[in-house]
Design a binder for these strands. Structure first.
Length: 832
RNA sequence: GCGAGAGUGGCGGAACUGGCAGACGCGCUGGACUUAGGAUCCAGUCCGCCUUAGGCGGAUGGGGGUUCAAAUCCCCCCUCUCGCACCA
């Protein structure tokens, strides 16, 4: 009896072999095209999950396939090792974050190796090691020098359960992206990266990324949120200064009947001073300050405001218009003040109705037929101008231009661009992160740590309680340092950097992970960059992918790399779900890769996660499906073992044209090469590639060596071709099994040293084709004809087919459509 | 509300540029081998109707349209998923 498929022994054997032979170690090689294949590195949470298995299996197929296609493939792996869970572990289990992280990395590295992923482990990066975070600090200092890192006091998103600040991108629907805790506003001094300096380029360059999914680009565009409009100056009625506003609807300027300021606006309280409204305004401002900002500015919160007691002048109509404060006006966007046009802006409309403020229609349209008295909501569409002086009658789109021209000419305003994107707040009041390299001195202020003093080492000996601010503040040896300038006693910054800073450049470090005098070796970075294929979850559509793009542009401007964009092609893989829901502990539907590895092995785990769905779609986990994948590998194992003795003996090639009984299998083999190759090339449709392989395996199983001894030699030849081709085509998916069987067939070299197979155009051509015959749109006959048949012959055969004739009886042929090698379609009309 | 994407057997999913809808896998049914089978192999498996060989009709969320021909193109509607959400 044949020996069983002992995946444990096989997988361990080849993993050892690959490690010993350094099979996946790469260096630059000018003789081959380079390919940088990267998957998002994991947070070392303790063990890999199915999402990792899927993500990294996809990447590994790409890497192994392209190696076989002759590319010099960089395929590295590392650890997003800073972060909050390590501190939580410290609080809960009293284990030091560094130890916890180290242990997790060790175990997860072992797990990834057991999956057989073809990483160049020599390039492994751990961003919690000083070798790495030193350079994060270095980038901070460079950015500080260029004015791209700055400190300011502002209201920031505060997650109480994480006890830290969050960037805007890290707040989802008012909740913390990590723990889903409620996020509130807190005023703090924070460090920011000036990502807004790159807003326009980040937006423009999205158009140069055809290899990115449209939806990711749309999300980034929306997030950057560019608006074209005008800044308009509204003078105060009392002659004391003016209030600038930003608007995209300068065509409605004549309809601005009041103004609204954010409650936090610097003028908010001053305006009411000395008026009867002073106390009311003060109370409103105080109340707004206490109210939760996210709730206050949520769309379903009722609009609310107070009159400041002062008036501004509408620069077009010269009317006095009241200035109010309103809860829904945001200080951070535009100028923190807006002109209110209740007739053509729904928010202003609601506000005006509530407080009895005046309305004036300035855009009219035939369909809408607006009047101040009857309108029940604002008209925000296009139209032509009315009540707008010299601009009356002008289409609104044209008026936008004409009015902004007028404003500029008269000095009343100017063209302006606004972005929704805010600067990236990077301070985190946590221990397990990269220390911000700044020292605060009484006399010199904030002083950057000199380059020669880097890295600022994260001290080991700290107490982590999860309460009362940054743990680093309680470490005197860390905090108390002399000022680098004046040598007077000073204090270190005790906040650490957002971990997204680390992941914003790790792909650059992979190109030269061991260099010591610079974060990135320029020559190596330029050789490997950009990443040709990046693979990861859609959840980073904005966060990580926007930060990494920003960082790449900064690094470029520092002269360390000459690419504008880090990732040429992006694949966002779907989630792994089970029983209709995302796997989660609370739902109890988690499948542990460990169990799959134990029961079926790595090749099965990989194969199933690639077969069950195309990579970009969600994958529905099915235990039965896994067994199916396992069965398929078993079949191949049996098939090869069964014939190996015979095939090993060596065989001579037979030209295709000389084949008799083996022609069919040989052709199918070549057709499969074509299909698998194209499915991989065409957007990584691994599921259909694998099904093509299954078809070939089915055909091989049907193929019998018995029968006429004269044709035996030929049969052995085509069988051998088929089996070797199956192994080659399957090797990126199930590398261990294919290596094993490849050796079993008598090859001494690794299967991965072998080139990807080619197919012959001549061989894949079928000799006979199936022609479908339709009569009036319905299939009425099927003809098997020589592929070389002429149109006339095909038509002749179709018309003389018995069944077709039956349906043509008593009818007249109106039209015959011929599709070569596919079908004949006959349309009829009633005959006489 | 705005934006993007998706609806195909019992299930996961195929289907080139409009050209046999349901590849491949799972499940299910029957059979072979067997002490046994939850191993393996073989056959069948969209639905309905006609007694059968075989045939007829219907079917890709719903309704209309273009076409010799529509899962695919156009219009209207329904459902689901994701993203953004008072950004002036």
């Amino acid at each position: 009896m044949a020996k069983p498929y002992d995946f444990k022994t096989i997988e361990a054997k080849w993993q050892k072999r690959w490690e010993e032979t350094e099979a996946f170690k790469v260096s630059e090689d000018p003789s081959r095209p380079k390919y940088y294949c990267l998957e998002m590195y994991p947070y070392p949470s303790g063990q890999i999950h199915m999402g990792h298995v899927r993500n990294y299996s996809i990447g590994d197929v790409v890497a192994r396939y392209l190696r076989m296609r002759g590319y010099n493939v960089l395929h590295p792996m590392g650890w997003d090792a800073f972060g909050l869970p390590a501190e939580n572990a410290a609080i809960e289990h009293g284990i030091h974050p560094a130890v916890w992280t180290e242990e997790n990395i060790r175990y997860m590295r072992y797990q990834l190796k057991r999956m057989g992923f073809s990483y160049d482990w020599d390039r492994e990066v751990d961003c919690s090691s000083a070798d790495y975070y030193k350079w994060g600090q270095w980038f901070f200092l460079k950015m500080y020098e260029k004015g791209l890192a700055y400190r300011k006091a502002s209201f920031v998103n505060w997650c109480d359960s994480c006890q830290t600040v969050l960037a805007n991108e890290q707040v989802e629907a008012g909740l913390c992206w990590r723990c889903e805790g409620v996020v509130t506003q807190k005023e703090l001094e924070q460090w920011f990266f000036k990502i807004t300096d790159y807003a326009e380029e980040l937006l423009q360059d999205l158009d140069h990324l055809p290899g990115w999914p449209e939806r990711v680009k749309v999300m980034q565009r929306n997030w950057i949120g560019k608006s074209l409009g005008a800044e308009v100056y509204f003078p105060m009625a009392n002659g004391r200064g003016e209030i600038p506003v930003f608007t995209t609807r300068q065509d409605t300027l004549f309809g601005a009947t009041f103004m609204l300021l954010a409650p936090e606006h610097s003028l908010a309280r001053g305006l009411s001073q000395g008026t009867a409204y002073e106390a009311v305004v003060a109370a409103f401002v105080e109340r707004m300050k206490r109210e939760d900002k996210i709730l206050r500015t949520a769309i379903d919160t009722e609009k609310e405001g107070v009159f400041t007691g002062t008036y501004a002048i509408n620069p077009m109509t010269r009317e006095r218009i009241p200035v109010w404060l309103a809860n829904f006006v945001l200080l951070e966007y535009g100028t923190g003040a807006v002109m209110a046009v209740p007739t053509h802006d729904q928010r202003d409309f609601e506000f005006a109705k509530k407080y009895g403020l005046p309305l004036r229609v300035v855009i009219q349209s035939a369909e809408a037929d607006l009047s101040e008295e009857t309108m029940e909501r604002a008209y925000e569409g296009e139209g032509y101008l009315v009540n707008s002086g010299q601009f009356n009658g002008m289409p609104s789109e044209k008026a936008k231009e004409a009015i902004v021209d007028y404003l500029e000419r008269e000095g009343l305003g100017k063209r302006a661009v606004q972005y929704r994107l805010r600067d990236w707040g990077i301070s985190r009041q946590r221990y397990w992160g990269n220390p911000i390299p700044v020292i605060y001195c009484e006399s010199c202020g904030a002083v950057p740590v000199p380059y020669e003093d880097l890295p600022v080492i994260l001290p080991r000996d700290v107490e982590i309680t999860g309460k009362g601010g940054s743990p680093l503040a309680a470490v005197p040896e860390f905090v108390n340092v002399p000022c680098p300038h004046c040598r007077q006693p000073a204090r270190r910054e005790t906040d650490t950097m957002d971990t997204f800073v680390d992941s914003s450049w790790y792909f650059l470090r992979f190109t030269s992970p061991h260099v010591e005098d610079t974060p990135i070796n320029k020559r190596l970075a330029n050789y490997w960059m950009p990443v040709d294929q990046y693979i990861g979850g859609i959840e980073h559509a904005i966060l990580h992918l926007l930060y990494a793009r920003f960082f790449t542009k900064v690094v470029r401007d520092l002269g360390l790399v000459n690419v504008d964009e880090p990732f040429t092609n992006l694949l966002t893989q779907g989630m792994v779900i089970k029983d209709g829901a995302k796997m989660s502990k609370s739902k109890g539907n988690v499948v542990d890769p460990e169990d799959i590895l134990e029961k079926y092995g790595a090749d099965t785990a990989r194969l199933f996660s690639l077969f069950a769905a195309p990579p970009e779609k969600d994958l529905d986990w099915s235990d039965r499906g896994v067994e199916g994948a396992f069965r398929f590998l078993n079949r191949i194992y049996r098939l090869v073992s069964q014939h190996s003795v015979l095939l090993k003996r060596g065989r001579k090639g037979i030209p295709f044209t000389d084949l008799m009984v083996g022609k069919g299998l040989y052709r199918k083999t070549h057709q499969t090469i074509k299909r698998v190759t194209e499915d991989i090339e065409d957007e990584f449709h691994f599921n259909t590639a694998i099904s093509a392989l299954m078809e070939l395996v089915n055909e091989v199983s049907q193929f019998s060596l018995d029968g006429d001894p004269a044709s035996r030699e030929e049969k052995v030849f085509v069988l051998d071709e088929a089996l070797e081709t199956i192994l080659l085509l399957l090797s990126p998916f199930a590398p261990h099994l294919c290596e094993e069987l490849w050796a079993e067939l008598g090859h001494s070299e690794s299967i991965f040293a072998k080139a990807w197979p080619c197919y012959s155009e001549e061989v894949i051509q079928e000799e006979k084709v199936l022609i479908v015959v339709q009569v009036d749109g319905k299939v009425r006959g099927r003809l098997v004809l020589p592929a070389a048949s002429s149109e006339g012959e095909v038509q002749e055969a179709a018309l003389s087919n018995e069944r077709v004739k039956k349906f043509l009886q008593g009818r007249e042929i109106a039209k015959v459509v011929m599709v070569p090698k596919r079908l004949v379609s006959i349309a009829t009309r009633a005959g006489e």
